[in-house]
Design a protein around this nucleic acid. Structure first.
Lengths: 258, 258
DNA sequence: AATAGTTAGTGTAAATTTTACGCACTAATT
DNA sequence: AATTAGTGCGTAAAATTTACACTAACTATT
């Protein structure tokens, strides 16, 4: 006979002492992987940890007065100035001592540089992090300021804590959900078909035939051909396109095949 | 000129007062959607809230000494006795006051029935819940005990808090990731091709041709034909199959098309 | 002004995959 | 014997994916 435990009722937590109530939820943070696209590279925006040589992802805590999505959006705005972007939750991380285990020497350095008297507390803080990724227009936040740096996916250094895992898993999620994601948000408002193709090729790490790709995209009718062309190259200037937002969203409902 | 905020360093939380330290992380829970499959129905295991008429999903808090996956596994074991199952994190929920906002009268009833003097505290507790779904063999935990009830997806009543959202989103995630998920875990160890087909048909809400489905599955070579047949019906007894675990996992890496 | 070099833009045919379904045979129930 | 449903083969139609070659427009060079 299988043993069935008897505490089958919902176990309510003890009420916390709210006297020194912080508006933020302790031990929970939101960490953001910000994707941008430039030339043929998928890039991630890294943030330099104050007064140290280390890099991390933008992160922050969650207020009790906001939803997770709002928190992610706010954190992004506060740390980078980027607002109003597409954000997608992809995974929540909560390994034991994950802030302690990874990059021990980095963590120590950061603690020292942060000039606060927090020595051991870090390992008990932000034990759980909700990962979001953002799709942003690279050009809108370039050139980077010295505290931030766009970094190609393939060249990302060791990051603080387990942030390298965040980047890896964000990329996995991005690839998996590609059919349903508005990846055009990684492009500038006006773009060429070739740029869009490059974007797909970079994310999926495969090549498309120019003509077939063209046909494929045109099926969905969310591309508006502009009367402008992009001059400057020593070649026939390509047409510029922009997105018909309504039609794009409709197409994304069903998924865009490739 | 875009305004860039200056707090670009990582903001460490104030250390919490650890004197009345609870081993569990307050305000965080793990909630489980347990999928089972019976006849032609996809079902979810619901848990009756102690001494009330309401139902909820199995849930519990997360210890600081365990990872999220371990917590989900433990919660499942503790509440239902089910162990060693496939668990998949699908989404983390954290809307403002989501425990207060949903099912106000239900929450109240539960609070009263729980016979604890927690009145307002609930709305500040378990603000964030990490959703996992499990794929289990329906037969192994049937017949249900009175505190639990298998409930067909289409007949789920109003659940506590925002647990209806959990079920909806778990199903969306299940459908989306179907190609990569070991949904055979929803079947008994020995099963017929027809049962597997029904399973796919139920999850995807579409029909397959018997012969084509047969061909499709056989391509992957993860089905082992057993010398047994399932007798009982007024017809030719169908063959029984079991899974070749190694080959199944290999096939799932690349995804099983349908 | 002519030319070379580069990339853009476009349609059609072949190959492959998916879907639909026919048929012969088997093995149980009633 | 009639009925019901599974097994396993095949084949044809439909849909999708892949392969492929030329002309056009611009810049840079001479």
């Amino acid at each position: 006979m299988r043993k069935i435990y008897t505490n089958y009722y919902i176990c309510f937590h003890q009420p916390r002492n709210m006297s020194n109530q912080n508006i933020n939820i302790p031990e929970v943070s939101v960490d953001c992987v910000i994707f941008g696209f430039h030339a043929t590279d998928l890039k991630v925006l890294l943030l330099k940890v104050y007064d140290s040589e280390y890099w991390s992802l933008p992160m922050g805590s969650v207020s009790r007065k906001e939803s997770l999505g709002m928190a992610a959006s706010r954190v992004l705005e506060e740390t980078t100035g980027i607002g109003n972007v597409f954000l997608q939750q992809f995974q929540t991380f909560g390994a034991v001592d994950r802030y302690k285990y990874y990059s021990k020497e980095q963590t120590k350095a950061v603690l020292e540089s942060s000039k606060k008297e927090v020595t051991e507390s870090l390992s008990y803080q932000s034990t759980i992090s909700i990962g979001y990724y953002a799709l942003v227009d690279f050009e809108k936040i370039a050139p980077p300021f010295k505290e931030y740096q766009w970094c190609a996916i393939s060249e990302i250094p060791n990051l603080l804590f387990d942030h390298n895992d965040f980047v890896d898993m964000a990329l996995v999620a991005l690839r998996k959900d590609l059919r349903y994601l508005p990846i055009a948000k990684l492009l500038p408002e006006k773009f060429t078909l070739r740029e869009m193709q490059k974007l797909y090729e970079t994310i999926l790490d495969r090549e498309f035939d120019r003509r077939n790709f063209h046909k494929l995209l045109m099926r969905y009718e969310f591309l508006i051909k502009l009367p402008e062309k992009r001059k400057g190259g020593a070649n026939k200037p390509p047409n510029l396109y922009k997105i018909d937002v309504d039609k794009y969203e409709t197409a994304l409902q069903d998924g865009i095949s490739y």
